[in-house]
Simulated assay, not measured.
Amino acid sequence: MLEVIDLVKRYGEVTAVDGVSFQVAAGEIVGLLGVNGAGKSTTLETIVGLVTPDSGTVTVGGHDVRAHPEQARAHIGFAAQDTALYPRLTVRENLRFFGRLTGASRHDADARADELIGLLGLTEQAGRLAGVLSGGEARRAHVAVALMARPRLLLLDEATVGLDVRTRTHMLELVVRAARESGAAVLFSSHYLAEVEIICDRVVIIHRGRVLADGTVAETIGRHAKSAVEFTFGDGTRQRHEVSDPAAELPALLARLDTGAGAPELKSVNVLPASLETAFWALTGEEPAGLVEEVA
Protein backbone atom coordinates (compact mmCIF):
# COMPACT_ATOMS: atom_id res chain seq x y z
CA MET A 1 0.00 0.00 0.00
CA LEU A 2 2.88 2.37 0.85
CA GLU A 3 6.31 2.20 -0.71
CA VAL A 4 9.10 4.64 0.11
CA ILE A 5 12.28 4.29 -1.97
CA ASP A 6 15.58 6.13 -1.37
CA LEU A 7 13.89 9.23 0.02
CA VAL A 8 16.17 12.25 0.50
CA LYS A 9 15.27 15.67 1.88
CA ARG A 10 17.75 18.42 2.68
CA TYR A 11 17.28 21.77 4.40
CA GLY A 12 20.35 23.78 3.42
CA GLU A 13 23.34 21.87 4.74
CA VAL A 14 21.19 19.62 6.95
CA THR A 15 20.07 16.29 5.50
CA ALA A 16 16.86 15.51 7.37
CA VAL A 17 16.10 12.30 5.45
CA ASP A 18 18.98 10.39 3.90
CA GLY A 19 18.02 7.51 1.61
CA VAL A 20 15.06 6.19 3.60
CA SER A 21 13.31 3.11 2.17
CA PHE A 22 10.55 0.93 3.62
CA GLN A 23 7.11 -0.50 2.84
CA VAL A 24 3.80 -0.87 4.65
CA ALA A 25 1.35 -3.49 3.40
CA ALA A 26 -2.43 -3.44 3.69
CA GLY A 27 -3.51 -4.62 7.15
CA GLU A 28 -0.04 -4.06 8.61
CA ILE A 29 0.95 -1.74 11.47
CA VAL A 30 4.51 -0.45 11.24
CA GLY A 31 6.10 1.55 14.04
CA LEU A 32 8.32 4.44 12.95
CA LEU A 33 10.83 5.13 15.72
CA GLY A 34 13.54 7.66 16.36
CA VAL A 35 14.56 10.45 18.71
CA ASN A 36 13.39 13.98 18.00
CA GLY A 37 15.09 15.22 14.85
CA ALA A 38 15.66 11.74 13.45
CA GLY A 39 13.59 12.46 10.33
CA LYS A 40 10.29 10.82 11.23
CA SER A 41 8.02 13.83 10.79
CA THR A 42 9.76 14.91 7.58
CA THR A 43 9.22 11.41 6.20
CA LEU A 44 5.53 11.50 7.10
CA GLU A 45 5.05 14.98 5.65
CA THR A 46 6.73 13.87 2.43
CA ILE A 47 4.38 10.89 2.16
CA VAL A 48 1.33 13.16 2.30
CA GLY A 49 2.85 15.70 -0.10
CA LEU A 50 3.43 18.52 2.37
CA VAL A 51 7.17 18.34 1.75
CA THR A 52 8.81 17.91 -1.65
CA PRO A 53 11.76 15.51 -1.53
CA ASP A 54 15.08 16.24 -3.23
CA SER A 55 15.10 12.71 -4.60
CA GLY A 56 13.46 9.33 -4.14
CA THR A 57 9.89 8.17 -4.68
CA VAL A 58 6.79 7.60 -2.58
CA THR A 59 3.82 5.63 -3.90
CA VAL A 60 0.49 5.19 -2.15
CA GLY A 61 -1.90 2.62 -3.55
CA GLY A 62 0.21 2.53 -6.70
CA HIS A 63 0.08 6.32 -7.19
CA ASP A 64 3.25 8.37 -7.17
CA VAL A 65 2.79 11.15 -4.62
CA ARG A 66 4.60 13.74 -6.75
CA ALA A 67 3.16 12.77 -10.14
CA HIS A 68 -0.39 12.08 -8.98
CA PRO A 69 -0.84 13.85 -5.63
CA GLU A 70 -4.64 13.94 -5.59
CA GLN A 71 -5.00 10.23 -6.34
CA ALA A 72 -2.41 9.37 -3.68
CA ARG A 73 -3.90 11.66 -1.02
CA ALA A 74 -7.35 10.20 -1.57
CA HIS A 75 -6.11 7.05 0.18
CA ILE A 76 -4.47 8.81 3.14
CA GLY A 77 -5.67 9.72 6.61
CA PHE A 78 -3.04 11.81 8.43
CA ALA A 79 -2.92 12.91 12.06
CA ALA A 80 0.12 15.16 12.43
CA GLN A 81 1.77 16.08 15.74
CA ASP A 82 -0.01 19.44 15.82
CA THR A 83 -3.77 19.18 16.04
CA ALA A 84 -5.71 20.72 13.16
CA LEU A 85 -9.28 21.53 14.15
CA TYR A 86 -11.46 24.57 13.52
CA PRO A 87 -11.70 26.14 17.01
CA ARG A 88 -15.12 27.75 16.41
CA LEU A 89 -16.74 24.52 15.30
CA THR A 90 -17.83 21.81 17.70
CA VAL A 91 -16.19 18.40 17.65
CA ARG A 92 -19.13 16.92 15.76
CA GLU A 93 -19.17 19.83 13.29
CA ASN A 94 -15.44 19.40 12.65
CA LEU A 95 -15.87 15.72 11.90
CA ARG A 96 -18.88 16.32 9.64
CA PHE A 97 -17.04 19.09 7.80
CA PHE A 98 -13.93 17.02 7.12
CA GLY A 99 -16.10 14.06 6.20
CA ARG A 100 -17.90 16.12 3.59
CA LEU A 101 -14.55 17.32 2.22
CA THR A 102 -13.68 13.70 1.42
CA GLY A 103 -16.81 13.43 -0.73
CA ALA A 104 -19.04 11.62 1.75
CA SER A 105 -22.76 12.35 1.65
CA ARG A 106 -24.27 14.32 4.51
CA HIS A 107 -25.89 11.15 5.84
CA ASP A 108 -22.66 9.13 5.68
CA ALA A 109 -20.59 11.92 7.20
CA ASP A 110 -23.04 12.27 10.08
CA ALA A 111 -23.09 8.52 10.68
CA ARG A 112 -19.31 8.19 10.58
CA ALA A 113 -18.87 11.18 12.90
CA ASP A 114 -21.24 9.66 15.46
CA GLU A 115 -19.45 6.30 15.18
CA LEU A 116 -16.03 7.81 15.85
CA ILE A 117 -17.33 10.01 18.66
CA GLY A 118 -18.45 6.84 20.40
CA LEU A 119 -15.31 4.84 19.64
CA LEU A 120 -12.95 7.58 20.85
CA GLY A 121 -14.92 8.45 23.97
CA LEU A 122 -15.90 11.92 22.77
CA THR A 123 -19.61 11.78 23.57
CA GLU A 124 -19.40 14.45 26.30
CA GLN A 125 -17.20 16.65 24.10
CA ALA A 126 -19.17 16.28 20.85
CA GLY A 127 -21.08 19.52 21.32
CA ARG A 128 -18.18 21.56 22.63
CA LEU A 129 -16.18 24.03 20.57
CA ALA A 130 -12.84 22.55 19.54
CA GLY A 131 -11.09 25.66 20.82
CA VAL A 132 -11.94 24.85 24.46
CA LEU A 133 -10.92 21.19 24.44
CA SER A 134 -8.11 19.91 26.63
CA GLY A 135 -4.97 18.67 24.93
CA GLY A 136 -6.00 15.03 25.21
CA GLU A 137 -9.53 15.72 23.97
CA ALA A 138 -8.22 17.67 20.99
CA ARG A 139 -5.81 14.84 20.19
CA ARG A 140 -8.67 12.32 20.11
CA ALA A 141 -10.77 14.57 17.87
CA HIS A 142 -7.74 15.15 15.62
CA VAL A 143 -7.25 11.39 15.13
CA ALA A 144 -10.99 11.00 14.52
CA VAL A 145 -10.70 13.45 11.62
CA ALA A 146 -7.94 11.27 10.11
CA LEU A 147 -10.24 8.25 10.34
CA MET A 148 -13.34 9.88 8.87
CA ALA A 149 -12.80 8.64 5.31
CA ARG A 150 -11.82 5.09 6.34
CA PRO A 151 -8.38 5.61 4.77
CA ARG A 152 -6.45 2.81 3.15
CA LEU A 153 -3.26 4.35 4.58
CA LEU A 154 -3.36 5.79 8.10
CA LEU A 155 -0.42 7.94 9.21
CA LEU A 156 -0.24 8.72 12.92
CA ASP A 157 2.45 11.04 14.29
CA GLU A 158 2.53 10.86 18.10
CA ALA A 159 -1.19 10.11 18.22
CA THR A 160 -1.23 9.13 21.90
CA VAL A 161 0.69 12.07 23.34
CA GLY A 162 -1.15 13.61 26.30
CA LEU A 163 -3.70 10.82 26.65
CA ASP A 164 -4.44 9.09 29.92
CA VAL A 165 -3.87 5.35 30.12
CA ARG A 166 -7.53 4.41 29.59
CA THR A 167 -7.97 6.69 26.57
CA ARG A 168 -4.63 5.59 25.14
CA THR A 169 -5.74 1.97 25.36
CA HIS A 170 -8.94 2.80 23.44
CA MET A 171 -6.89 4.66 20.84
CA LEU A 172 -4.56 1.70 20.34
CA GLU A 173 -7.53 -0.66 20.03
CA LEU A 174 -8.97 1.59 17.33
CA VAL A 175 -5.67 1.60 15.42
CA VAL A 176 -5.54 -2.20 15.56
CA ARG A 177 -9.15 -2.40 14.40
CA ALA A 178 -8.41 -0.12 11.43
CA ALA A 179 -5.68 -2.51 10.32
CA ARG A 180 -7.18 -5.89 11.18
CA GLU A 181 -10.84 -5.29 10.33
CA SER A 182 -10.65 -2.56 7.68
CA GLY A 183 -7.36 -3.62 6.10
CA ALA A 184 -5.73 -0.21 6.43
CA ALA A 185 -1.96 0.09 6.22
CA VAL A 186 -0.85 1.98 9.35
CA LEU A 187 2.39 3.90 9.86
CA PHE A 188 2.55 4.63 13.58
CA SER A 189 5.17 7.09 14.80
CA SER A 190 5.51 7.03 18.58
CA HIS A 191 7.88 7.81 21.43
CA TYR A 192 6.26 5.17 23.63
CA LEU A 193 8.11 1.94 22.92
CA ALA A 194 5.86 -0.15 25.14
CA GLU A 195 2.80 0.57 23.01
CA VAL A 196 4.79 -0.06 19.82
CA GLU A 197 5.68 -3.52 21.10
CA ILE A 198 1.99 -4.18 21.81
CA ILE A 199 0.41 -3.23 18.48
CA CYS A 200 3.05 -3.10 15.75
CA ASP A 201 3.85 -5.92 13.34
CA ARG A 202 7.13 -4.34 12.30
CA VAL A 203 9.33 -1.43 13.32
CA VAL A 204 11.49 0.92 11.27
CA ILE A 205 14.13 2.70 13.35
CA ILE A 206 15.44 5.96 11.88
CA HIS A 207 18.47 7.79 13.22
CA ARG A 208 19.93 10.96 11.74
CA GLY A 209 17.81 10.49 8.65
CA ARG A 210 18.83 6.90 7.95
CA VAL A 211 17.10 3.57 8.49
CA LEU A 212 19.06 1.49 11.00
CA ALA A 213 16.61 -1.38 11.36
CA ASP A 214 13.53 -2.70 9.58
CA GLY A 215 11.90 -5.91 10.79
CA THR A 216 9.37 -7.44 13.12
CA VAL A 217 9.53 -6.48 16.78
CA ALA A 218 10.86 -9.95 17.65
CA GLU A 219 13.48 -9.81 14.89
CA THR A 220 14.64 -6.35 15.95
CA ILE A 221 14.99 -7.40 19.57
CA GLY A 222 16.68 -10.66 18.63
CA ARG A 223 19.23 -9.02 16.32
CA HIS A 224 20.06 -5.88 18.23
CA ALA A 225 18.96 -6.01 21.88
CA LYS A 226 21.01 -6.99 24.92
CA SER A 227 20.18 -6.90 28.57
CA ALA A 228 21.46 -3.85 30.41
CA VAL A 229 22.10 -2.59 33.92
CA GLU A 230 21.30 1.05 34.56
CA PHE A 231 22.61 3.05 37.51
CA THR A 232 20.83 6.26 38.54
CA PHE A 233 22.70 8.72 40.75
CA GLY A 234 21.62 11.44 43.13
CA ASP A 235 22.66 14.20 40.77
CA GLY A 236 20.24 12.89 38.13
CA THR A 237 22.89 11.30 35.90
CA ARG A 238 22.61 7.74 34.65
CA GLN A 239 24.97 5.07 33.42
CA ARG A 240 23.88 2.13 31.29
CA HIS A 241 25.98 -0.98 30.71
CA GLU A 242 25.13 -3.76 28.26
CA VAL A 243 25.50 -7.20 29.84
CA SER A 244 24.91 -10.80 28.87
CA ASP A 245 24.09 -12.02 32.39
CA PRO A 246 22.90 -9.21 34.70
CA ALA A 247 23.02 -11.29 37.91
CA ALA A 248 26.54 -12.51 37.24
CA GLU A 249 27.98 -9.21 36.03
CA LEU A 250 26.31 -6.80 38.46
CA PRO A 251 28.84 -7.25 41.33
CA ALA A 252 31.76 -6.34 39.06
CA LEU A 253 29.92 -3.29 37.74
CA LEU A 254 29.19 -2.11 41.28
CA ALA A 255 32.82 -2.63 42.27
CA ARG A 256 33.97 -0.33 39.47
CA LEU A 257 31.75 2.56 40.55
CA ASP A 258 33.47 5.69 41.80
CA THR A 259 32.68 5.95 45.51
CA GLY A 260 35.31 8.53 46.39
CA ALA A 261 34.76 11.94 47.94
CA GLY A 262 32.56 14.10 45.75
CA ALA A 263 31.22 11.19 43.72
CA PRO A 264 27.45 11.26 43.28
CA GLU A 265 25.43 8.90 45.49
CA LEU A 266 24.00 5.80 43.81
CA LYS A 267 20.20 6.02 44.09
CA SER A 268 18.97 2.98 42.19
CA VAL A 269 19.96 0.01 40.08
CA ASN A 270 17.63 -1.10 37.29
CA VAL A 271 18.05 -4.33 35.33
CA LEU A 272 16.64 -3.95 31.79
CA PRO A 273 15.92 -7.18 29.91
CA ALA A 274 16.43 -7.37 26.17
CA SER A 275 13.60 -5.34 24.67
CA LEU A 276 12.76 -2.84 21.98
CA GLU A 277 14.13 -0.16 24.28
CA THR A 278 17.55 -1.79 24.63
CA ALA A 279 17.58 -2.56 20.88
CA PHE A 280 16.94 1.12 20.18
CA TRP A 281 19.73 2.14 22.53
CA ALA A 282 22.17 -0.35 21.01
CA LEU A 283 21.41 0.79 17.46
CA THR A 284 21.46 4.55 17.97
CA GLY A 285 23.98 4.86 20.77
CA GLU A 286 21.65 7.39 22.35
CA GLU A 287 19.80 7.22 25.62
CA PRO A 288 16.13 6.70 24.74
CA ALA A 289 15.03 9.05 27.52
CA GLY A 290 11.47 10.18 26.89
CA LEU A 291 10.88 7.29 24.51
CA VAL A 292 9.72 4.86 27.16
CA GLU A 293 6.46 4.95 29.04
CA GLU A 294 4.63 2.16 30.78
CA VAL A 295 1.32 1.18 29.16
CA ALA A 296 -1.13 -0.37 31.60
Rank of each mutant, 00 (worst) to 15 (best):
E115A: 14
L44F: 15
T43G: 04
T57M: 10
V30P: 03
H68I: 00
I76E: 10
A144H: 03
Q125K: 12
S41Q: 09
V35S: 09
R112P: 11
G131R: 02
L119H: 07
F97Y: 15
G49C: 06
R140N: 08
E124L: 13
F98E: 06
P69N: 04
A144C: 09
R88A: 04
T43W: 01
D110R: 08
G77P: 09
L101W: 01
A141T: 06
L116G: 07
G56S: 14
K40A: 01
T52P: 09
G103D: 13
V51H: 13
Y86M: 07
T46L: 04
R66N: 12
R96S: 01
R88N: 13
R96Q: 10
D54P: 12
D108V: 11
V143F: 00
D54E: 14
R152N: 04
Q81T: 08
L89A: 00
L85C: 11
A138F: 01
R140S: 12
G37E: 03
V60N: 11
P53M: 13
G127W: 02
M148S: 14
T59L: 09
T83H: 10
G39Q: 05
A141K: 02
A74R: 15
A144P: 13
I117Q: 00
E45T: 11
A159V: 13
K40Y: 06
A84W: 07
G37T: 04
F98D: 10
L95Y: 04
L33R: 02
T160G: 13
G77Q: 03
G39P: 14
T52L: 14
L154M: 09
L147E: 06
I117M: 03
V132D: 15
A113K: 04
L95Q: 04
G131S: 13
N94Q: 02
R152Q: 11
A111Y: 03
L147G: 06
A159T: 06
G62E: 13
H63Q: 02
R100Y: 01
G37D: 07
L89H: 05
G31R: 01
A111Q: 13
T160K: 10
R112I: 10
T43D: 13
H107E: 14
V60G: 14
K40F: 01
I47D: 02
G49A: 05
G31N: 04
R66L: 15
L120E: 05
A138P: 14
G121N: 12
F78H: 15
T160V: 05
G136E: 00
T42C: 11
A109Q: 03
E93R: 11
G56Q: 08
Y86Q: 01
